[in-house]
Amino acid sequence: MTSHPEFNERTTGTEVASVFADQIRGKTILITGISPKGIGASTALAFASQSPALLILASRTKSKLEAVAEQIRTKFPSCHTNTRIELVSLDLSSQSSIRQAVTDITRLLIGGNKLDILINNAAINTTTRQTTPDDGLGLELTFGTNHIGTFLFTNLLLRNNLLSPPPPPPARIITVSSAGHRLSPMRFSDYNFSHPEKEVPAEEDYLKPLPGAFAKCTEDGYNGMVTYGQSKTANILFTLYLQKRLKGRRRGVGAYSLHPGTIETELGRDQDPEVKQEFHKIEAYWKSLDEGCATTMVAALDPALDETKGLYLVDCQISDPHPHAQDEVAAERLWKLSEEIVGEKFTLEDF
């Protein structure tokens, strides 16, 4: 149970930050996926409201990073003196960009500074088949960005010893997932969806029938909602593996995942009108950007989570993901597959 059962879908991230101000003040926080019209920006603004020592904003587009940094400085003039804001270029679809970003972040943390909170917020949702640009593997872009990119980025930060050790409160790794994870388990036998109509084991098959416009595919059989669903399941399984290996260990690192809610952001900018209409059919309440970051803030800040077995949060409270996202065997299998894809082994017991 969280420490504030009164928090709900209409709670704002700014409200959560105010309640947990002592968990933010003076801390070092890294947020990926920063865009002026996304929940990465609202998350950054919520944290900035309570004077963290260092706020590192990471994204693919320099102009978007600069725009959000200016939003923060305009809304919270005290950030000019109380909070250091640093901007880092990060494209999670590119393994070379990820490695360079970790090098840049390591330089920013010289002098023994560590990350207290890592928010893995960045994600994409494509409508056509695309592949990652520079790894030579031809990874399906959504899986390659939303999971593999996040997997590599997080593990390199851990390997470089950049997350804060005890004493409490322990560092936290927060990975933003989605209720869309229910659309598809991990499709281990064809995670690139190279053969959409291929017969796969029942436990790997996506939800059938898909509701309404969610069933729309391109001519080559690609379905962006299904591939997005798989990537969001991967986010939760990744978090589950981190929990089992890190929580309670000497480093004291906590890991949680969440569904932020249904929010109008740039994530859905490429969706056609029929898919957008389908979302309006199934979701009555659409959150503001500030409401959309509230569950992220609870996951990152609520001390009560350290005493629970919670893995996944919805509307600021602990919830249960779909059973296919709670499977420890699948979580370990995904970890090994991810290591194979990035070409490196990551043994969390060493961190």
Rank of each mutant, 00 (worst) to 15 (best):
P168M: 12
P170W: 06
L162S: 05
T175E: 05
A123F: 08
P170G: 15
I119G: 01
I148M: 09
N125K: 14
N146D: 11
F153S: 14
D134V: 09
G138T: 04
S177P: 05
P168E: 15
T128M: 10
A171V: 13
T126N: 12
H181K: 09
I148G: 12
P167L: 08
N155A: 13
R129D: 11
L118Q: 02
N121F: 01
I124L: 14
A171C: 15
I124T: 10
T128R: 13
H181Q: 15
A122L: 09
N161M: 00
R159A: 15
L139I: 00
P168D: 14
I173R: 08
N161Q: 05
A122C: 07
F151T: 03
L139R: 02
P165T: 00
P167R: 10
I124S: 02
T142S: 09
R172K: 15
L141Y: 00
A179L: 02
T131K: 14
G149P: 11
S164P: 06
R172A: 15
A123Y: 07
G144T: 00
S164L: 02
N121D: 06
T154D: 10
A171P: 15
A123E: 10
V176S: 03
E140M: 05
N161R: 01
G180P: 12
T127C: 11
G180I: 10
L137K: 13
F143M: 09
T175A: 10
T127G: 09
F143H: 06
D135H: 14
T126K: 12
T142G: 03
T142P: 11
P166T: 07
P133H: 11
T126H: 13
A123C: 07
T150K: 05
R129H: 14
H181P: 11
N120E: 04
H181Y: 11
R182M: 12
T127S: 12
T154C: 10
T145D: 07
T145N: 01
H181E: 13
H181C: 10
N146V: 01
H181D: 12
L163E: 08
H181N: 13
T145G: 05
N160H: 11
H147E: 09
N160V: 00
R172I: 14
S178V: 04
L162G: 11
I119M: 04
T145F: 08
T132V: 04
I124C: 07
L137F: 02
N161E: 03
G180V: 10
N146E: 04
G149R: 04
L152W: 02
P169Q: 11
L158I: 05
N121Y: 01
Q130Y: 02
T127E: 14
P133K: 12
G136Y: 08
H181L: 06
S177V: 00
R172Q: 15
P169K: 09
R172L: 12
V176Q: 03
L141M: 08
L137G: 06
E140G: 08
A123S: 13
G138L: 00
L156E: 15
L158P: 13
